[in-house]
Amino acid sequence: MAKEVRETRSYPLRYRLRTAVEPVVQGEFRCTGLTQTAVDVMVASKLSQALVVADGLARRLHDEGVLPDDANLLSVADIRHGIAAHPFEAARRRAEHVAGLAGPLAESAGESYSRAAFDFLGFEQPVLQHQFRDDDGFIGRSDCWWPEHGVVGEFDGKAKYLDVDIRGDMTAEEAVYREKLREDRIRALGYGFARWSWADVDNPDRLRRKLLAAGLRPRHRS
């Protein structure tokens, strides 16, 4: 595969000269390390793609005990230094914005893409993985929670209902039914509720309408 990449250019490649690189060997490839690769993506890619990678790195650092729940990637010295070393100001600003958004609590690529869409549409970033309770006890965690607006948001990928590794021993029908009961209990607390899918994230105007219908308001005109 490495030979095919070099000879046919069948994969998108970006080139950047560096004074020093500490390569990491992955199979037949010599690669940059995880942190440097994430910085490279953040300075060069659009927000949605970069935030998926940055959130993934944040989760990894959180699992390793490096990053607290409420911290973003700008709190990591290697990230800050890597961004600061980039020669172009516009790229540095773009990467700083991504690193400032990136945190360890987004649990899927869909949640990361959604947060990029919120930023694009002018909505404030939500609290992630907030726990809800009622008089009967614990209800569950939400993907997104906007406490100032009293709005709960859920990214609904198919895997939540169809992937056995995620839904466990439940059937797909049981997973859908339990999710409905959970939503009903949260709505009974008096909160607005919005659900969206990949199709909505790919169509930001449709996502915007769903969020507005649930009671969320943008912080500025998108």
Rank of each mutant, 00 (worst) to 15 (best):
D69M: 04
L101C: 06
A85M: 07
G137Q: 08
V98P: 04
L128R: 10
S75I: 02
Y113N: 02
G100I: 00
P126K: 05
P147H: 03
V98G: 01
N72H: 15
R60F: 02
E96N: 03
R141N: 09
G122H: 10
A85T: 02
I79M: 04
G137F: 04
G82N: 06
G82S: 09
A95H: 01
R60G: 01
Q125M: 14
H97D: 07
S142Q: 11
F88I: 05
D119I: 02
E107A: 12
L61C: 08
E124W: 08
D134L: 09
R94N: 07
V98Y: 02
D70F: 10
D63L: 02
A85N: 00
P87C: 04
D70Y: 08
P126W: 01
Q131W: 04
G82D: 03
A84Q: 01
F118G: 13
R133M: 15
R92V: 01
G122M: 12
P147W: 07
C144Q: 14
L73H: 00
G122F: 01
D135T: 05
F120D: 15
L73S: 01
P68L: 00
V76D: 08
L73Y: 14
R133N: 08
G65D: 14
R133G: 07
H81M: 03
R133F: 15
E124F: 11
A91G: 00
R60D: 01
D136S: 11
P147K: 15
A95R: 05
F120I: 06
N72I: 08
A90V: 11
E89Q: 14
G82R: 04
A58E: 14
P68R: 11
P126H: 07
L73I: 07
I139Y: 03
D63C: 05
S75D: 12
H86L: 10
G140L: 03
A90K: 12
A109C: 15
L74V: 08
A84M: 04
A71S: 14
A90N: 02
P126V: 00
H97F: 06
E96L: 04
D63M: 09
P126L: 00
F120K: 13
C144P: 11
Q129E: 06
R93M: 04
L74H: 08
P104V: 12
I79R: 00
P147E: 11
L105P: 06
G137A: 07
S75G: 15
W146K: 07
S75F: 12
S114T: 02
A91M: 10
D78A: 14
